[in-house]
Computed example of a mutant assay.
Amino acid sequence: MLKTSQDLAGGTTPVVHLRDVFLAEKGETAKPGGRYICCGANTTVARLARFLAGKFPQYSVKTDGFGDVAEEPRMLLSSEKLVGEGFEYECKSLDDMFDDAVECGKALGMLPY
C-alpha cells in the first residue's frame, strides 16, 4: 500500500522554504556531520489546501476530499536543535513560503497569471 506524507509523518505535513533549506545546508550554524530537522511550519494537507485556496483563489485549489485527515497535526517536527545552534529561518510563515513559490511558478511559466 502506498503511504502518503500524511501517513508517514503522523498526520503532519511539514513545510519549509527552499531558501531556508539552502541556508541550513550551508552549515554556517550547524555542526558538520550532524543531523538536523529543517521544518519551517507544521500543518496538515487539509489546512494547507484551505490556506492556498483562500490566498490564491485564482488557482481553484480543492479543499474537500481529504477523508478522515486530522484537522490538527498529530505530530510536530521540531527544528529546536538547528535553531539552538543559531540558525534563523528567513521564511517563518506559510505566507512567506507560498508567496515566493507562486511567484517562482509564474516566472517559470508553470503557473498562469
Rank of each mutant, 00 (worst) to 15 (best):
M1E: 13
L2V: 15
K3R: 14
T4C: 04
T4E: 11
S5A: 08
S5Y: 11
Q6K: 12
L8T: 14
A9D: 08
A9P: 02
A9F: 14
G10W: 10
G10D: 12
G11D: 06
T12D: 13
P14L: 08
H17L: 04
L18T: 11
R19D: 15
F22G: 09
F22H: 12
L23F: 04
A24Y: 02
E25H: 00
K26H: 00
G27K: 03
E28S: 00
T29W: 04
A30S: 14
K31P: 02
K31D: 00
P32L: 10
G33L: 05
R35G: 01
I37V: 10
I37R: 07
I37N: 15
C38Q: 00
C39F: 02
G40T: 09
T43I: 06
V45R: 15
V45D: 10
V45Y: 10
A46S: 15
A46R: 15
L48H: 03
R50Q: 13
F51E: 11
F51R: 08
F51M: 08
F51N: 12
A53N: 11
G54I: 05
G54C: 02
K55R: 15
K55A: 14
F56P: 09
P57T: 08
P57M: 05
Q58G: 12
Q58C: 09
Q58L: 13
Y59M: 12
Y59G: 13
S60H: 14
S60F: 09
D64L: 02
G65W: 07
G65E: 09
A70H: 08
A70M: 06
E71V: 04
E71N: 07
E71L: 05
E72H: 01
P73N: 10
R74S: 00
L77A: 08
E80D: 13
E80I: 04
E80A: 15
E80L: 07
E85A: 04
E85N: 07
E85Y: 05
F87N: 01
F87Y: 06
F87R: 02
E90T: 05
C91M: 14
S93K: 13
L94D: 03
D96A: 09
M97A: 10
M97P: 01
D99H: 08
D100G: 11
D100C: 10
A101I: 00
V102S: 06
E103F: 00
E103Q: 13
C104Y: 08
G105D: 09
G105W: 06
K106C: 05
K106H: 02
A107C: 03
A107Q: 14
L108N: 10
L111Y: 09
P112S: 06
P112M: 03
Y113L: 15
